[in-house]
């Protein structure tokens, strides 16, 4: 049977703005992927452990509260600790350009800003995990 792409979509931080996360989750699902949705208020520990248990290919994190420079590095660190560096991490939210650069340096694959076409996110994932 063909391999399915599995994506964890989570919202770290304390804010409840999950419109983006849910729109992206729906779009990826409609593109034939399996979405594991863990919802609001996720700690980096919860995200990393869920990603490992679910053996996902990709993790998408939506952050709008300004805590991205705390959340992403912690998630990256935990992924490494758990032997899951192979998982591709991308993010979305209001993140200033200079922070985007810093995040890409620590291994975040891509940051999608406001106004992103969900088709671009699908493409980004498909480029890495083509349908077999």
């Amino acid at each position: 049977m063909a391999r399915k792409v599995r994506v964890l979509v989570a919202k770290p931080g304390l804010d409840g703005h999950d419109r983006g996360a849910k729109v992206v989750a729906n779009a990826l699902k409609d593109a034939g992927m399996e979405i594991i949705y863990t919802g609001l208020h996720q700690t980096p520990e919860m995200i990393a452990e869920s990603a490992v248990q679910e053996d996902v290919d990709v993790v998408g994190l939506s952050i709008l509260s300004g805590a991205h420079m705390t959340m992403f590095p912690r998630v990256m660190e935990l992924m490494k600790e758990k032997g899951a560096e192979h998982i591709v991490i991308f993010g979305g939210g209001i993140i200033p350009a200079e922070d985007v650069e810093k995040l890409e340096k620590i291994g975040v694959a891509r940051i999608f800003g406001p106004g992103t076409d969900t088709g671009d996110i699908v493409k980004f994932i498909r480029e890495r995990f083509p349908e077999e």
Binding site: I35, I36, Y37, G39
Partner: peptide
């Protein structure tokens, strides 16, 4: 062919 797996949300 896609799926939305949301049960974890209750078990976090």
């Amino acid at each position: 062919g896609g799926a939305f797996l949301g049960d974890r949300i209750r078990m976090q």
